[in-house]
C-alpha cells in the first residue's frame, strides 16, 4: 500500500508542544473561569495552577514563533495557500460541510486541495483567537507583575479579562471540533490521528478521500510517496 508523507517532523513537533500547552492552559484556566471549581482547592494548588498556566502560555506563544523562525518558508507557503482564491470545489465544500457533519452517509463532499476550505477557515479563526488570547494574557500578566512594575489602567485590564475569556470560549469550541475531526472520532475521519500523533503519513486511499487534488499531485510527483 502506498503512503504519502503529509505532515513533517517539524510540524508534528510543533503540534505536540501546542497540544500539551493548550490542554494545560484550558485545564488550569478552568479553575479561574469557574469559581465553583476553585472553591474546594487549597490556595497553594491554585497558585501552582497559575504558574503552570503561565509556563504553558510561554510554550503556547513561543513554540509557533520558534517554529516559524526554524522553517519560515514552510509557514509562508502554508499561509499563501490559505489565502488563495477559492475554487468551485472549495465553495461546494463549505456549503455541504454542516449537512455532511450530520448526515455523512448521504452527503458526498467534493475533492479538495492540500487544505480543505473549511480547514482554512477554522485554522485562520483559531490563529486569530489564539493571538487575542496571547495579547490579552500578556497584558494580564505584565499588569500584575511586580518585577516589571508596569501599571495599566483598570478599564484596559477589564477589557483584557473580557477579551481573554471571550476568545478562550471561541477557541475552545473550535478546539472541540478540531479534536472530533482531527482525532478521527467522526467516523469518516478515522485514521487521521496518525497525521499529527504518528509518523505523519496517510494512506493513498485516505488521502484521495480527504484531499483528492493534493493526493493526485503527490502521487504524480512521487516525492513524498512510500510503499509499506
Amino acid at each position: 500500500m502506498r503512503y504519502i508523507q503529509r505532515q513533517s517532523k517539524h510540524a508534528r513537533t510543533v503540534h505536540w508542544f501546542h497540544t500539551i500547552a493548550c490542554l494545560s492552559l484550558f485545564i488550569t484556566g478552568l479553575f479561574l473561569y469557574v469559581p465553583a471549581f476553585a472553591g474546594g482547592l487549597d490556595v497553594g494548588v491554585l497558585q501552582a495552577g497559575r504558574l503552570i498556566h503561565r509556563i504553558a502560555a510561554v510554550i503556547f506563544i513561543g513554540v509557533p514563533l520558534i517554529g516559524t523562525l526554524v522553517n519560515p518558508k514552510a509557514v509562508a507557503h502554508k499561509f499563501k495557500e490559505y489565502f488563495q482564491a477559492w475554487t468551485p470545489e472549495d465553495k461546494e465544500f463549505m456549503k455541504k460541510f454542516l449537512p455532511y457533519m450530520f448526515a455523512p452517509k448521504k452527503v458526498h463532499m467534493p475533492k479538495q486541495d492540500r487544505y480543505k476550505s473549511g480547514q482554512k477557515v477554522a485554522d485562520l479563526a483559531a490563529i486569530v483567537f489564539s493571538m487575542l488570547i496571547a495579547i490579552s494574557g500578556a497584558f494580564m500578566w505584565i499588569g500584575v507583575s511586580p518585577t516589571l512594575n508596569v501599571e495599566f489602567s483598570a478599564s484596559l485590564m477589564r477589557f483584557m479579562y473580557f477579551m481573554h475569556d471571550g476568545s478562550m470560549i471561541a477557541l475552545g469550541v473550535l478546539l472541540l471540533a478540531h479534536i472530533f475531526v482531527g482525532a478521527g472520532i467522526f467516523q469518516p475521519y478515522r485514521g487521521t490521528l496518525r497525521l499529527m500523533f504518528g509518523d505523519g503519513k496517510i494512506s493513498e486511499e485516505e488521502a484521495r478521500f480527504h484531499w483528492g487534488f493534493w493526493a493526485e499531485d503527490e502521487l504524480k510527483s512521487g516525492k513524498n510517496v512510500t510503499e509499506e
Binding site: M101, F102, A103, P104, K105, H108, K111, L176, A177, F180, I185, F186, Q187, P188, E204, E205, R208, F209, G212, E216, L219, K220
Partner: peptide, 20 residues
C-alpha cells in the same frame, strides 16, 4: 458533535474515485 457522532455510526466510505 455528539449528534454528529451518532449520525456517523455504521458509516462506510464510498468507493474512491478511480485513480488517475
Amino acid at each position: 458533535l455528539g449528534l454528529s457522532y451518532l449520525s456517523g455510526i455504521g458509516y462506510k466510505r464510498e468507493e474512491p474515485d478511480e485513480p488517475e
